[in-house]
Amino acid sequence: MAKTARREPTPNESIVLFNEVDGLCPLCNKSLMRSKNKAKVKIFEAAHIYPLNPTNEEIELLKNEERLTLDVNDLDNFIALCRECHKVFDHPRTVEEYRLLYNIKKNIISRNMTKEKFHEYPMEYEIREVLLKLIGETNETNLTKLQLEAHKLDDKANESLTNFTKRKIRNDITDYYLFIKEEFKQLDKEHPKSFAKIASQVRSFFTQIDSIEESQEKIYEIVTEWLSKKTQNTSKTACEIITSFFVQNCEVFDVNS
């Protein structure tokens, strides 16, 4: 069988691979750049997740494993590794390490797909006013805790939502739901129907992401990041609280039948 020629990623593709792993080797967490003479020097390699020209032993080893793409030179089959980890990963190849990199890259691909949706779904600028209120004006004396939940979080959450995140969402709903609801009511007085538009935008974005991503944990993170990017808000905590509000208000996560 003729060997497949190796395709080296272009400079732009190398930047993509570097950014996908946040500049750190996903196996050892070593920085993939180093400084030399006041310049940044690349010290990573583009590793094939599924081998470029697998040996008979590797074909047998990976015969039951899923692949990200049938084209071994597709960027979806590359991942940035430091040189040492690349060598260890290739020789000898193991199922465990293959599955590890496969899952890392699969999550990266999924994340990239969802981020591509960010620009398609606008967000009313007025929501910044609510976020700024959360950051600057909330304290224990002006919060009224929610005693009864219209829809219990347990009715919406599935096993993909960690207990830690579920507890955080529940606490955010209890502490902030009524405060945020009142702020949206005030916002509607200044900008009529603002809340209806914002809620519709959140629901539309959730519906789109829900069709791509199965994990509620990741959906929660994606909606939070989308809110942060769209409102240019630097407070992740405030955006998490707003996401929790929309979980309670039924724009995010569906009540299980």
Rank of each mutant, 00 (worst) to 15 (best):
S211L: 11
D155S: 10
E20H: 11
N142W: 07
R128W: 08
Y98W: 01
Q248K: 15
K236C: 00
Q216W: 10
K38P: 00
N29I: 01
H191W: 11
V95E: 15
N171V: 11
S228A: 15
Q201H: 04
I104R: 13
L227Q: 04
K3D: 07
E129K: 15
L187F: 12
E45V: 11
I15D: 03
I173F: 04
L17I: 10
K117I: 05
E45Y: 07
R167I: 04
C85T: 02
D188P: 08
E84Y: 05
N73M: 04
I241P: 02
N56T: 06
E251H: 02
E58I: 09
D175A: 09
S194C: 05
I135T: 07
R34I: 02
V223D: 04
N53F: 06
I180S: 12
R34P: 03
S194E: 01
K115E: 12
K236Q: 05
T224M: 08
E20I: 02
K185Y: 09
A46R: 03
F195I: 09
S160P: 11
P192C: 10
N256Y: 10
F206D: 00
E140F: 09
K117C: 11
E58R: 13
S204A: 14
E57C: 05
S228P: 14
A238T: 03
T165L: 03
I15Y: 07
R167Y: 06
G136I: 00
S14M: 14
L81I: 09
